[in-house]
Simulated assay, not measured.
Amino acid sequence: MKIFIAGASGAIGGHLVPQLVARGHEVVGTTRSAAKTAALRALGAEPVIVDALDPDSVADAVARAEPEVIVHQLTALSGPPDFRHVKRMAEATDRLRTEGTDHLLAAARAAGVGRFVAQSNAMWMERSGGPVADEDGRIEPNPPADIARSVAALRHLEEAVTGITWGDGIALRYGGFYGPGTGISAEPGAVMTEQIGRRKFPIVGGGGGVWSLVHITDAASATVAAIERGKPGIYHVADDEPASVRDWLPELARALGAKPPRRVPAPLVRLLAGKGPVDLMTRARGVSSEKIKRELGWAPRHPTWRTGFTEGLR
């Protein structure tokens, strides 16, 4: 198939593009930066520079590409997490998940695209119903005020994509990425790895928030499965072992050769960084990926972060 990947130069694009090319697909990949076109070409994609917030730029690129599938991987999450300025840090990604999604969907409909696959996020599942949610679970309806705009942007993306009637709309709720090309890897410059090494990524409160993680190559292979044979709706993409922050974060620090993470009282973090980061660290729910395994035959190469941290960070 001919596949148009919006945001192909991001973390997942570096793994998704070569997997698709290896399977015989033709890939057109967008980037905002001319400096990244050579890297996309080296991966096997035809690069195109697109401003995802300009509807005319998006419509023109999609019309020229004439794809059968559009994959929405647009984010603006590079750089170190700034928990003291959560709203400002997330603003660009929020616009890509709202305005950017709408522009891509309009272009897809005009071009007769049959399938639309979009990146969502599993970190903000509704904070009730047990430690692990399946796809029947919804995005948290009452998030902390300082993160409400970002959660609403996720909700907008999912509703817009899965609500299309002219094609197959698929939203992938990914767990937290780790591995080469992400912020958690053994590569120089990996931003979260550096923060963990400096003990600036602490366990907040009791660290009881449950996170689902996924190696970036597994996230890419799940996306390939959704592109090739997914059904309209939502799929969770994560490994088989959701775990509390207090369990997985010390293991990650150990795998990186760093000192154990500090422990910081929740009220202090709430005062300095707001309620959103505290909620993620203390109330988050994990997700089950049984649906994508059952329906699409996907299986992660790293079924647990325990081996993934020791074998898959390089």
Rank of each mutant, 00 (worst) to 15 (best):
P242W: 01
G297S: 07
M1R: 15
E66C: 05
G10V: 09
S57L: 03
A258T: 10
L252A: 13
V27A: 06
K87W: 04
A219S: 08
P180A: 13
K293W: 00
T101C: 07
E311I: 00
R84C: 04
G114D: 13
A111C: 14
L271I: 01
G312E: 03
L40E: 09
T223W: 02
G175C: 03
G308Q: 02
K275D: 15
A42E: 14
E66N: 07
N121W: 12
R246A: 13
V69L: 08
A59W: 04
R23S: 11
R155C: 04
Y174N: 01
P202K: 09
E135F: 06
H25W: 04
D60N: 12
R246V: 12
W166V: 10
A226H: 13
R109W: 05
S288D: 14
H25P: 05
G14M: 07
E251F: 00
A22F: 00
E158Q: 11
D94L: 02
M123Q: 12
F116E: 14
T98Y: 03
D82N: 13
A273M: 13
A106V: 13
A45T: 06
A45V: 08
G206F: 01
V50E: 14
R173I: 07
V17H: 13
G163M: 09
R84V: 02
A6E: 11
D60Q: 11
G308C: 00
